[in-house]
Amino acid sequence: MSIQSIDVLYTAVATAENGRDGRVSSDDGKLDVVVNPPKEMGGSGAGTNPEQLFAAGYSACFQGALGVVARQEKADISGSTVTARVGIGKSAAGGFGLKVDISASIPNVDAETAQELVEKAHQVCPYSNATRGNIEVTLSVD
């Protein structure tokens, strides 16, 4: 797999202090959150965590990609939602890895059209392109 070359339109900048048990903030001040490991991983669970932040970004990005595809296909996706579930666990190769489940609810189209739209969105979503071939990503339609 070759590395994708892009013309950068925007660069997000965030800085973490104290890793998974600290704070993450963006350079423009719009994001400033406490991060803590979840209770399931021995943490306090008091703040958000990197997996929640990744799920939030992925779901928003995928919803945007779905909108692009829907406009091209002239499909009505009003009222639709995209949910990303990001799992973290030990990998067989050592260390930790991620797994993502993307589910979309698209109430104004039939199930077959919804599935086609989700599969096409997966081909254009920047998060999907970044993770393809690196982690398991499953797609479903509610």
Rank of each mutant, 00 (worst) to 15 (best):
S44F: 03
V137G: 05
V68W: 05
N36E: 14
K90Y: 01
V34L: 14
I88C: 11
S128H: 07
G67F: 03
G45S: 07
V118S: 09
V109S: 09
E40P: 00
T83C: 09
S103P: 03
A121K: 05
D142Y: 01
P38G: 03
N108L: 05
L66Y: 05
R20D: 00
V124N: 09
T48S: 15
D110M: 08
T48A: 04
I106L: 14
N49K: 10
V35S: 07
P38E: 07
I106H: 09
A121H: 09
A121D: 12
A104E: 03
A14G: 13
G43C: 02
T81C: 00
T83K: 15
T83N: 12
A46P: 00
L9T: 13
N134K: 11
Q63H: 13
A56Y: 00
R20N: 08
S25C: 04
N36S: 15
S91Y: 00
T11D: 02
V33H: 04
E17P: 00
S128M: 02
V35T: 15
E136I: 06
D21H: 12
K120W: 00
G47K: 05
K74P: 00
S80A: 15
G22A: 06
F54N: 06
T48F: 04
G42N: 09
V8T: 15
L117W: 08
I3G: 12
Q115Y: 00
S103E: 14
S140V: 03
S44W: 02
E40Q: 10
G87E: 11
Y127N: 06
V33Q: 11
G95Q: 06
D101Q: 15
K39E: 15
E136T: 13
S140R: 13
A65M: 06
D21K: 09
K90G: 11
A75C: 11
S128D: 05
S44A: 01
S105V: 04
A130G: 11
L9P: 01
D101C: 05
V35N: 09
K30L: 13
R71L: 03
G94A: 05
V137T: 14
S44T: 15
S5K: 14
V109Q: 09
D27M: 02
S5Y: 02
A114E: 11
P126D: 07
P126W: 08
A65C: 07
G57P: 10
E17N: 12
D28R: 13
S59R: 07
G97A: 14
G94M: 07
V137D: 08
C61Q: 08
A60G: 14
T48G: 10
V86M: 08
S5H: 10
V68M: 13
N36K: 13
G87P: 09
Y127T: 02
E51V: 09
A16V: 13
I106F: 01
F62N: 01
M1I: 03
D76Y: 04
N134A: 10
G43W: 07
G89Q: 07
S105H: 13
S91R: 10
T83G: 06
Y58L: 03
L53H: 10
E40F: 00
S105Q: 07
A84L: 09
V137S: 05
V124E: 03
G64S: 13
P50G: 06
V8N: 01
G29W: 04
Y10G: 01
Y58Q: 02
A92H: 10
L53T: 09
G79Y: 00
P37V: 00
N18P: 02
S103V: 13
S103L: 01
